[in-house]
Lab assay of single mutants.
Amino acid sequence: NKFNKELGWATWEIFNLPNLNGVQVKAFIDSLRDDPSQSANLLAEAKKLNDAQA
Rank of each mutant, 00 (worst) to 15 (best):
N1S: 05
N1W: 01
N1Q: 09
K2M: 11
F3W: 09
N4F: 12
N4A: 11
K5W: 12
K5E: 15
E6H: 06
E6Y: 07
E6C: 15
E6F: 10
L7F: 09
L7M: 08
L7W: 10
L7D: 07
L7A: 07
G8D: 15
G8L: 15
G8R: 14
G8V: 15
G8I: 15
W9L: 13
W9V: 09
W9A: 12
W9S: 10
W9E: 14
W9F: 09
A10Q: 05
A10G: 05
T11N: 06
T11Q: 12
W12D: 15
W12L: 14
W12V: 12
W12M: 14
W12A: 14
E13S: 04
E13Q: 12
E13D: 04
I14E: 06
I14M: 03
F15C: 15
F15K: 11
F15T: 14
F15E: 15
N16K: 06
N16V: 04
L17S: 01
L17Y: 04
L17K: 00
L17V: 01
L17T: 01
P18G: 06
P18F: 08
P18D: 04
P18C: 13
P18T: 13
N19Y: 13
L20D: 00
N21V: 05
N21G: 05
N21D: 12
N21C: 11
G22H: 12
G22L: 13
G22S: 13
V23S: 12
V23Y: 14
V23C: 15
Q24I: 04
Q24Y: 01
Q24W: 03
Q24M: 03
V25M: 07
V25I: 13
V25Q: 06
V25G: 00
V25E: 01
V25H: 03
K26G: 04
K26Y: 07
K26F: 05
K26D: 03
K26R: 10
K26A: 10
A27L: 10
A27T: 08
A27D: 05
A27N: 10
F28L: 04
F28A: 00
I29M: 07
I29H: 02
I29S: 02
I29K: 01
D30T: 10
D30Y: 03
D30L: 05
D30A: 09
S31K: 14
S31F: 09
S31D: 04
L32T: 01
L32A: 03
R33Q: 09
D34V: 09
D34S: 12
D34K: 14
D35P: 00
D35H: 09
D35E: 05
D35C: 12
P36T: 03
S37A: 10
S37F: 04
Q38A: 08
Q38V: 04
Q38L: 08
S39C: 14
S39H: 11
S39I: 14
A40N: 07
A40K: 11
A40R: 12
N41E: 12
N41P: 10
L42R: 03
L42N: 01
L42H: 03
L43E: 01
L43D: 01
L43F: 04
A44H: 09
A44Y: 09
A44T: 07
A44C: 13
A44M: 09
E45P: 00
E45V: 08
A46W: 02
A46I: 01
A46C: 03
A46Y: 04
A46F: 03
A46Q: 01
A46E: 00
K47Q: 10
K47C: 07
K47L: 06
K47T: 06
K48M: 09
K48N: 05
K48F: 08
K48S: 08
K48I: 06
L49K: 03
L49M: 08
L49P: 01
N50F: 02
N50Q: 02
N50C: 05
N50M: 01
D51S: 08
D51M: 11
A52N: 07
A52L: 12
Q53Y: 06
A54P: 04
A54G: 11
